[in-house]
């Protein structure tokens, strides 16, 4: 990419000497130092962030080796017994593995298909509103749910949908119809989660897209109107392309987290009647790892999840590059 062209320039600029191998090494060194010194402030800016990643991400990551051990806090990482892939074998041979995989992917795909595009559509709709007062009030209202915690949303869901207390069932009953169980029905569980996620985050999700739209030069619209382009065509040819970069990055990142499902949400919504469709990797890791204290086993599962995430992101990024879209790196 443009990176290489930059590199090329600097090579031209600072490599006057002939290409004897020995000299080249010293030259490279000499080139390095001035570069570093020139950009010392940039490194200074980057430093706190890098330190953060080293201390709070890399050091804990090294502890992932306990996934290959029979870790005991008393013996520590150095003293604990190495067991190789034993925990992975135990996990993959567990009949529940496929259930967990199915539920995790199912919930994530529902999110990807219905939840991911929702804020994009909403942002497009809001961008078409001309009345500033209305735009602002709608904006302010739809952001609110984002600020609520999952516990509260669980409570509200119960108030709305439960069979004996729920508003919906009370209305059904009042109109002489029989009540429906929504919360303890396995068929509705994934849908319920998706609805909750959309309700909570869709308004908030528009922020990033509206910011991207804000970057569009109004002249572009004016020119398009001159050319006789209708609303949908303007949306399609001007607004959407302006968001493309952001959409692509968000999409790739979301693929990377496909193995993650909002733990707190699923955990709160889960009940005995829906376990079969509700148990996901995150809840399983929590139950087995934290509650039953099997740290090595749960670390191994976490590792498996991460590896799948990495593979997905790399693949998606490759695909995006091939399609000529903006990519992550």
């Amino acid at each position: 990419m443009s990176e290489t062209s930059m590199g090329g320039q600097s090579e031209q600029r600072s490599a006057p000497g002939k290409s004897a191998p020995l000299r080249e090494i010293t030259l490279k060194k000499r080139r390095l130092w001035p570069d570093l010194r020139r950009d010392k402030y940039l490194y200074l800016l980057a430093m706190p962030g890098l330190l953060f990643f080293i201390i709070f991400k890399y050091i804990p990551i090294t502890n992932l080796v306990i996934g290959f051990q029979d870790y005991s806090p008393y013996l520590g990482i150095m003293g604990s017994k190495w067991v190789g892939f034993e925990h992975f074998v135990r996990f993959f041979s567990n009949p529940d593995f496929w259930m967990l995989l199915r539920n995790t992917l199912g919930i994530s795909l529902m999110n990807l298909v219905f939840f991911f595009p929702a804020p994009i559509i909403l942002a497009l709709m809001m961008n078409e509103v001309r009345n500033q007062i209305m735009k602002r009030s709608v904006q302010s209202l739809i952001y609110i749910p984002h600020f609520l915690s999952w516990v509260l949303i669980y409570g509200l869901t119960y108030l709305m949908f439960s069979q004996s207390e729920g508003l919906i069932n009370k209305l059904l009953e009042a109109s002489g119809k029989s009540t429906v169980d929504i919360l303890s029905n396995p068929h509705y569980f994934w849908g319920m989660l998706t609805v909750q996620s959309i309700w909570k985050e869709v308004g908030w999700g528009t922020i990033i897209f509206l910011a991207a739209i804000a970057g569009v030069d109004p002249q572009q619209y004016e020119a398009a109107v001159m050319d006789g382009a209708g609303r949908f065509r303007r949306m399609w040819h001007i607004t959407l392309p302006a968001m493309r970069n952001v959409i692509m990055i968000l999409f790739i990142l979301r693929l990377g987290t496909i193995m993650d499902t909002g733990f707190e949400q699923v955990y709160l919504m889960m009940n005995a009647a829906v376990t079969e469709v509700a148990e996901v990797f995150d809840t399983y890791v929590y139950r087995v790892g934290i509650r039953q204290g099997e740290f090595s086993y749960s670390t191994a599962i976490g590792l498996f999840k991460s590896v799948v995430g990495v593979v997905l992101v790399v693949l998606a990024n490759k695909a995006a590059k091939r399609l000529g879209q903006d990519s992550l790196y």
């Binding site: 207390e165 919360l183 303890s184 005995a272 009647a273």
Partner: peptide, 8 residues
């Protein structure tokens, strides 16, 4: 005899 929402 129990709440309908027994399970949840």
């Amino acid at each position: 005899l129990f709440p309908k929402d027994f399970a949840i």
